[in-house]
Amino acid sequence: MGYLTVKWLHVMSSTLLFGTGLGIAFFMWKAHRTGDARVIAATARTVVRADACFTAPAVLVQFASGLWLAHRLSMPLSVFWLKWALVLFFFVGACWLPVLWLQVRAHRLARAAAERGAPLPAGYHRAMGWWYALAWPAFAGVAAIFWLMVVKPAG
């Protein structure tokens, strides 16, 4: 693959990563605000699938294409902006991996409540509290990575 093709894949995967993450967060938040276990279960099921189909592959393409581009340009990973982009990438991943588990947990708890016609359990609310707490720093990290990729500050 040529440089411009890989660069295009890198930009597209970063866009997909941010856009899917923002969409998932929006729809989970809207469903959560209804308090309706059926709505939450259906939305969370879709969110989990979207993360598997779009976010996870975008993360892999983003990482692989970024390393390939740096190697192709003979750019050491110690370059200020690139080093911090990688630090943030792993920070975002450290937030995102628990979020995946929390989404699955929220889905299961909401589905079980909906099947029983019961209110959402305390475990659901704890899971969503952690989900929100981890989502904000992850989004800030992704936004900072975008800024680093565009501005490329020398440090």
Rank of each mutant, 00 (worst) to 15 (best):
L120N: 05
A37L: 04
G117H: 04
T46A: 12
F54C: 12
A70I: 01
G117V: 06
W81E: 00
D51I: 02
K152H: 06
C95H: 04
Y132W: 14
I40K: 07
C53N: 11
M149T: 05
T55K: 06
S13C: 10
L17Y: 03
A85I: 01
V59E: 00
Q103A: 13
S13H: 02
W96D: 04
C95Y: 02
M149K: 05
V39S: 10
K30I: 08
A112T: 09
V47N: 13
W101I: 15
L148I: 04
A41N: 07
L60F: 05
V48E: 09
K83E: 04
S74M: 07
F26M: 13
A85K: 13
V39W: 03
L73Y: 01
Y124R: 05
A52T: 07
F91E: 00
A112E: 11
V61D: 00
A144Q: 02
V79C: 05
A56Q: 02
A106N: 10
W130T: 11
P119D: 10
W81A: 04
M28I: 11
R72K: 10
L69R: 02
R116C: 09
T43G: 11
I145F: 01
P76W: 01
S13W: 00
A140C: 14
M12R: 06
A25V: 10
C95D: 02
M128R: 04
T34I: 10
Y132A: 15
V92G: 09
H71F: 05
G117Y: 02
G93S: 06
R126V: 13
P57I: 00
V11T: 07
L77S: 09
A50G: 10
F54I: 05
F26H: 12
L77N: 09
E115D: 13
Q62I: 07
T55Q: 12
G35F: 02
L97D: 03
G93L: 06
A122D: 09
R38K: 14
L77V: 11
T34N: 10
F54G: 08
G141D: 01
T55P: 13
H71Y: 03
P98K: 03
M75T: 12
R111L: 07
H107W: 09
W96V: 15
W29V: 15
L9Q: 04
T20M: 13
L88D: 00
L22R: 09
A64K: 01
L97Y: 08
F139E: 08
T55C: 08
L88N: 03
A58S: 13
Q103M: 11
A140Q: 03
A122I: 08
A135L: 15
F91H: 03
F139C: 13
R108V: 03
A113N: 00
T15M: 14
G19F: 01
M128W: 01
F139P: 15
M12V: 15
S78F: 00
Y124W: 02
S65R: 04
A143V: 13
A110Q: 05
W147K: 09
L82H: 07
A56F: 04
V39G: 06
V39E: 09
R49L: 14
A41S: 12
Y132T: 14
K152Q: 11
V61E: 00
D36W: 01
G141T: 06
W81S: 05
